[in-house]
């Protein structure tokens, strides 16, 4: 165990952390959108990711569809799933207050987790592709191809969501309603429709994150909750209600984790992340980046 990594190792850690963090970030964007728009803390987000991961697993296994192409299937399916979840469940429960929606999300998490256990067993699965193990070198730094692909995909998804929120009427309505629901109604915006769209996008982002994850990491049904927590931490780091902030928060978390597992020990990486999370909640509830990230 060396406390002072060499420069090359240091860069390697940062790059690995960034790859890891991008996935947290994408999941966090969905979570942050949903929370911003309807104050629902959707802790089943990570479980949705794992559901996507298993779907890819099956698509590869039964139909030999490349995971990257499966994104094109996963995204629409998850959009519809999100829409249905909001319309069928969250819309009616949202009047009962935040603890009810939290509980509902929790119930969904337990339900999906155990469904997945039932269908896919608790064994750890992974998705193998032709490029799973390929990598290239830049100086002393190794970059795995699949990780790079995943990061690019995540980047594209983030940009699309950003542009959607910034450029379209619906996107602007989402941002408006997130700030003031009643005023939205006074302008002729149907807040339930907007929320349903937001929820759908949030779930689709979980789908993207799930596809990205399964390309790199082995997974099991319990993995989801861990990812939900990580996404929450990422939001706390980046500040609520901003797409860029959530992604950046995820990357900060990823780097923090890979740094602490190198310098201290992998076992403690999680605890350090939680401790940082609580510290951030206490001292900078607006996020590490504060106002700067307050825009979109």
């Amino acid at each position: 165990m060396s406390y002072f990594p060499s420069l090359a190792v240091f860069f390697q850690i940062i790059i690995n952390g960034t790859f890891l963090g991008t996935m947290y970030g994408v999941a966090a964007i969905g979570l942050s959108l949903i929370f911003g728009c309807m104050q629902v803390l959707f802790i089943a987000q990570g479980t949705m990711m794992i559901l996507a991961a298993y779907s890819v697993f099956w698509l590869v296994y039964f139909m030999s569809i490349d995971p990257l192409i499966s994104i094109l299937i996963i995204i629409p399916v998850f959009l519809v799933l999100g829409w249905i979840m909001y319309k069928g469940m969250f819309q009616r429960v949202s009047q009962a207050g935040p603890s009810s929606t939290l509980l509902l999300a929790f119930g969904l998490m337990v339900f999906m987790e155990s469904m997945m256990l039932f269908i896919w067993s608790p064994n750890i699965r992974s998705v193998k592709t032709s490029y799973s193990t390929s990598a290239f070198q830049i100086g002393d730094i190794t970059i795995s191809v699949s990780r790079l692909i995943v990061t690019v995909v995540a980047g594209i998804a983030t940009c699309l969501v950003y542009l959607f929120l910034k450029k379209t009427m619906t996107g602007k309505a989402i941002r408006g309603v997130s700030e003031d629901r009643v005023t939205g109604m006074l302008l002729g915006i149907n807040p339930n429709r907007v929320s349903a769209i937001t929820f759908a996008i949030g779930i689709a982002m979980a789908g993207v994150a799930g596809v990205a994850t399964c390309l790199i990491y082995p997974f099991d049904p319990y993995f989801g909750f861990l990812f939900s927590l990580k996404a929450l931490i990422a939001i706390a780091f980046g500040g609520l209600g901003s797409v860029g902030g959530a992604l950046l928060g995820g990357i900060i978390l990823g780097i923090l984790e890979s740094l602490s597992s190198y310098t201290i020990s992998p076992g403690w990486a999680d605890a350090i992340a939680y401790a940082a999370f609580i510290l951030v909640l206490i001292f900078r509830p607006q996020g590490l980046l504060g106002k700067a990230a307050d825009k979109v």
Binding site: V93, L103, L104, G107, L108, V110, F111, M112, F118
Partner: peptide, 11 residues
């Protein structure tokens, strides 16, 4: 599975 469904239904 039942526990999860139960929570969902109750809420």
């Amino acid at each position: 599975i039942f526990s999860g469904a139960f929570i969902v239904l109750v809420t």
